[in-house]
Design a protein around this nucleic acid. Structure first.
Length: 103
DNA sequence: ATATTGACGGGCA
DNA sequence: GTGCCCGCCAATA
């Protein structure tokens, strides 16, 4: 559970109003392909301190039904953060894409 | 105990 | 440019 824990740290480091992708987090961890495990980390999602709703796939969208409460809930939370959804249900990663501030 | 899958992404043909 | 295969670690069967 080592990198797993690291995933939580990175996810928790995501500032409000920003979104991060699995690949982005994976890259931060040092392995670009561990995106799957990032998703698994979210699956184990200690929702009390892990904003999994800010973690999306590279398309800027989440898998419907796999979220903590539903896509509608996730969408509502992201909109509450100030994030706008596109007509295709994707977040503008170009604008809301979280940049790693700590290297 | 071992094998496969699993919220994905990247690299190579 | 597009398509297919491989990889990472943990959990579940």
């Amino acid at each position: 559970m080592s990198f797993f824990n690291d995933v939580y740290v990175v996810v928790k480091d995501i500032p409000p109003g920003k979104v991060a992708t699995y690949g982005q987090i994976a890259r931060l961890l040092g392995n670009p392909r561990m995106a799957r495990q990032v998703g698994w980390a979210m699956a184990a999602c200690p929702e009390n301190h892990t904003p999994c709703h800010r973690v999306l796939n590279r398309f800027g969208a989440c898998c419907k039904g796999f979220a903590f409460g539903g896509e509608e809930v996730q969408r509502a939370l992201l909109e509450a953060e100030g994030i706008a959804f596109g007509p295709d249900g994707c977040v503008d990663l170009t604008r809301y894409g979280w940049e790693r501030q700590a290297e």
